[in-house]
Design a protein around this nucleic acid. Structure first.
Length: 108
DNA sequence: AGCATGACGTGAA
DNA sequence: GTTCACGCCATGC
């Protein structure tokens, strides 16, 4: 059986994982990639989210870097927008540019 | 079929 | 603490 026997490209799987992230919690690209079935394709996760065909059902703003930093090239309006969305959901920040992964890392 | 790109991760200087 | 470079995977042309 192929790893992506779901019939959907890995990209679709990434979106589904991101959609499962609960409110007030964040996940890192590496973690999403791991849950999607590609522990080494963290890079691809970024591309999949960048393409983000459905920004409505795909809370890509809940996906951050492994160190809790945000993406400067965020598609919605920059990391600033992403930070606002995360704070709005109750995600604690350690400074203003890094999320407190120690407390809000999605516990899949 | 091969090449170039990319919202990453980790290690080392 | 910060910065650089490499490696990883999948996509699109």
């Amino acid at each position: 059986m192929a790893p992506d026997a779901e019939g959907a490209p890995l990209s679709e799987r990434v979106y589904e994982v991101v959609r499962r992230i609960p409110c007030g919690r964040v996940a890192t690209y590496g973690q999403v990639a791991r849950l999607a079935g590609a522990p080494r394709a963290a890079r691809f996760v970024g591309q999949a989210l960048h393409r983000n065909p459905e920004p409505i059902v795909t809370p890509c703003h809940r996906v951050v870097f492994a160190d809790g930093s945000l993406a400067e090239r965020f598609g919605f309006g920059g990391a600033g927008m992403q930070r606002a969305l995360l704070e709005h959901e109750g995600v604690p920040f350690v400074d203003g540019t890094h999320v407190d992964l120690a407390r809000c890392r999605w516990d899949a």
